[in-house]
């Protein structure tokens, strides 16, 4: 049985692309906490993340996110207001300043100007808020991306390869920030060992390998409710 409190609940959900199953029809639930999604390159992690973000529709099955059925138009609009999603490449606005970028996001999240200042301060971007994104170092640009993603304080944050290309020091600085973004954070990463749970996507199946489960970077954890990332029951 899948817990009703799960952030993401899939029932017989399958995702196809170019004639092959990226995710074979399966039922699973993902609760809160920081969940890492690992797997070989090109296996479909980004597509799965975009599906959880409601930007793609599953090929088969049903998907509930934050208790809403994304197949229902009213529910879809409601749940989208509570999701933050940052794709791998988001630097589409190199000529905007960090503040303008976040303010632009705030318009679409229907948030007041005060929330822009608040999230900039939370992401420690106040001093660089007037600098264009293209001039910022990668880690600071990522902070700006996270600020735009979380300006509306979402309940679920989905991040696609957020730490790729950053050195260990920058990664270590950002991990606590990522952990604090929302009650549920699901991210793809090459080495997601610091996450509370790690799921792997391989050959169309989502699994929770026991070997990765005991994360070596556990000290980065912040107090969270007990997570229930369930081993999928494939249909």
């Amino acid at each position: 049985m899948i817990a009703d409190v799960s952030t993401i609940v899939a029932r017989g959900m399958g995702i196809r692309r170019s004639g092959r199953w990226l995710l074979r029809p399966a039922a699973f639930g993902i609760a809160g906490g920081v969940i890492g999604l690992a797997g070989p390159s090109g296996v479909g992690k980004s597509t799965l993340l975009a599906t959880f973000a409601t930007l793609r529709r599953p090929h088969v099955g049903a998907l509930d996110v934050l208790g809403y059925d994304i197949g229902n138009a009213t529910d879809l609009r409601s749940v989208r207001a509570r999701i933050g999603y940052l794709p791998a490449r988001f630097s589409w606005a190199a000529n905007l300043t960090a503040r303008e970028f976040v303010a632009y996001a705030a318009y679409y999240k229907r948030m007041p100007a005060a929330s822009v200042d608040a999230v900039l301060e939370r992401m420690e971007l106040t001093e660089v808020a007037s600098i264009e994104l293209g001039l910022l170092p990668a880690d600071v640009r990522l902070r700006a991306g996270l600020a735009a993603t979380c300006v509306h304080e979402p309940d679920l944050v989905l991040l696609d390869e957020p730490l790729t290309g950053l050195d260990d020091q920058r990664t270590a600085e950002l991990v606590p920030l990522i952990r604090s973004l929302a009650p549920a954070v699901l991210l793809t990463a090459t080495d997601p060992g610091w996450c509370d749970r790690v799921l792997t996507l391989s050959r169309g199946r989502l699994a929770e390998p026991e070997t990765v489960f005991a994360a070596a970077l556990r000290p980065y954890s912040i107090p969270m409710p007990c997570q229930q990332a369930r081993v999928p029951a494939h249909a």
Partner: peptide, 17 residues
């Protein structure tokens, strides 16, 4: 289209963007 991650996840109408 690459902005969908930001403009589609909105409490506004999905046609706003």
């Amino acid at each position: 289209h690459r902005l969908d991650y930001l403009r589609s996840l909105t409490p506004r109408s999905p046609a706003t963007g």
